[in-house]
């Protein structure tokens, strides 16, 4: 668990707002070089890490986890020293007023999202959620200083420092999808090349939150015989019991969807059943709203399996996961990597 804790904390500290993933390439490469035979990147901002099997003709298994996170972008510098912003990805604006942020420009600038006090709010607006257009970042800088420091287009992160809760639960911004990046790294770190049945192509992909194109571009380059997409999914939470969700702490899930490969998905489940590995199941009947949806229809079509880590409070600075579920996903990935594709299909 120490590897998971340490690397997760480090991954969550990296600024990876969609479209700016390459800004964190150096540190990611440093981590990945320890466990992979090859590291590379493309112009879109996808990172591809390869771990080879000892077999020269091994099929290519792509394992994807996205690197990017939701955030904001500076649209204007206003008189009085405020910054206006637009969203990058599906931000939950309910949590924004008075949130702490970091503006990434020539230097990292600490800021707060200002809010209109209840005394001054128009009646009616007190109970409604402000839109992003009504919210501004306050840094304390003057307008002239800001114009010098911050270009229009600078990315902004909502601060959510890595925090340990009880019973192996942790909270941080961007656990969607760094929790999966961490699980994939943990799996590859522990895989033995002797038993490995595939050449593994790990894609730490860009811009899942803004169109899901990154992983598909990598898939087009890699042309894998099989792909496993890993992402977070809604973990059950008090107050939302009706939702068909998976539970934090009970292991990673294997997802069932029209857009995933039926044979392989069933094969993975039966393999885990046979070996007595705990996992959960969740059904996403048509779209999965993950990188799976474009990867599966890339090129001539790629058979995919989708796996998820349950996560609470998605797209907030306090996204919460259980470390056990990260370990669980890594364990499942290792078992699949040790099983021939034809065996999976035949189970």
């Amino acid at each position: 668990m120490d590897f998971i804790k340490e690397s997760l904390k480090e991954l969550c500290s990296l600024m990876t707002v969609s479209g700016f993933e390459k800004k964190s390439r150096t540190r990611l490469f440093e981590i990945a070089r320890q466990y992979f035979d090859e590291v590379s990147e493309d112009s879109f901002g996808n990172f591809v890490f390869v771990k080879k099997s000892l077999n020269n003709n091994a099929p290519r298994l792509m394992i994807d986890a996205h690197f990017d996170m939701v955030g904001m972008m500076v649209t204007d510098i206003l008189e009085g020293g405020f910054l206006s912003v637009t969203n990058i990805g599906g931000l939950d604006t309910r949590i924004l007023p008075s949130a702490e942020v970091t503006v990434y420009s020539k230097r990292e600038i600490y800021g707060l999202i200002s809010s209109i006090p209840p005394h001054l709010s128009k009646s009616g607006s007190k109970s409604s959620v402000p839109t992003l257009e009504e919210l501004y970042i306050d840094t304390g800088y003057s307008v002239d200083e800001l114009k010098e420091l911050v270009p229009v287009g600078a990315p902004v992160v909502i601060n959510g420092e890595y925090t340990e809760l009880q019973n192996g639960f942790v909270a941080a911004a961007s656990l969607d999808d760094k929790a999966c990046v961490c699980a994939v790294f943990d799996a590859v770190r522990r895989i033995s090349a002797e038993e490995l049945k595939y050449d593994i192509y790990v894609t730490v992909s860009a811009q899942e939150e803004t169109g899901k194109c990154g992983a598909a571009l990598s898939a087009c380059r890699i042309r894998p015989q099989m792909a496993i997409i890993t992402d977070v999914n809604f973990g059950a939470i008090e107050g939302d019991k009706d939702y068909d969700s998976i539970v934090c702490g009970k292991g990673a899930s294997v997802d069932i969807s029209a857009l995933t490969d039926r044979k392989l998905t069933r094969g993975v489940m039966r393999l885990l059943d046979k070996e007595g590995v705990q996992y959960q199941r969740i059904c996403e009947p048509s779209y999965t709203y993950t990188n799976n949806d474009l990867v599966s229809v890339t090129g001539e079509g790629i058979p995919t399996v989708l796996m998820s880590i349950p996560l609470r409070s998605m797209h907030t600075p306090v996204e919460t996961v259980c470390l056990k579920d990260i370990r669980s996903l890594a364990d499942i990935l290792i078992r699949v990597a040790y099983t021939e594709k034809t065996d999976l299909e035949a189970i």
Binding site: D42, G153, C220, R221
Partner: peptide
Amino acid sequence: DEILLKGGTDTGAIQTAKMG
């Protein structure tokens, strides 16, 4: 500088064609 909040352009289609 331009940030256009509504409406798209060929830019997005070109960026995501083939391998990008």
